[in-house]
Amino acid sequence: MVRFWRELIKGVVISNPVFALVLGLCPTLAVSTSLDNALGMTAGVLFVLLGSNIIISLIRKAVPNIVRIPVFIVVIATFVTVINLLFHAYVPSLYESLGIYLPLIVVNCIVLGRAEAFASKNPISSSIADAIGITIGFALALIIISFFRALLGTGNISVLGRNLFSFPGLTKDPIVLFILPSGAFLVIALLLALFRWTGVMKE
């Protein structure tokens, strides 16, 4: 059990996939325009990562080295297709706004990276912990980035169609730069620099 929590916390902080390892950038930057998108992407990644980590950990001893990567890709792509169909059927608006970034979870370095580096070498329980930890770390990064982009770029923070709060002044004249694609680069640059400056993360 101790091991479970250790793996989980490791994924969230020390090897945070986005800030520390700088992995999985495409979805992080592309869908961070609103908190809803960030949460939807997190749900997608959690489903795929959890599923693929469990299956790969289960079959890790049966898979010969030569077909390792193809097997991993098939497993991951299966889960991505399943979540894609589920989103299309049950949350169509989210499916629309995530667009091609939902199927692109297949090539998300985080997912394949965890399969290769962790699940293929570890038992199920720690693979589950690893998947949850990594997803929380990913979600944290995504939520922080989209919080700043939505707040500064639109002046409003809303979740699931409900407006949590508006920043007076910004609603009328938002700093459009932040919601533009360039704003994503700006926010992640400043956050990375901040983390290094405060010493939370090493260079």
Binding site: F185, A189, L190, L192, R196, E203
Partner: peptide, 14 residues
């Protein structure tokens, strides 16, 4: 120091 490497690369991309 804290901007070296990736942060500055991200700013360039911006």
């Amino acid at each position: 120091k804290s901007m070296r490497g990736l942060p500055v690369a991200f700013l360039t991309a911006m």
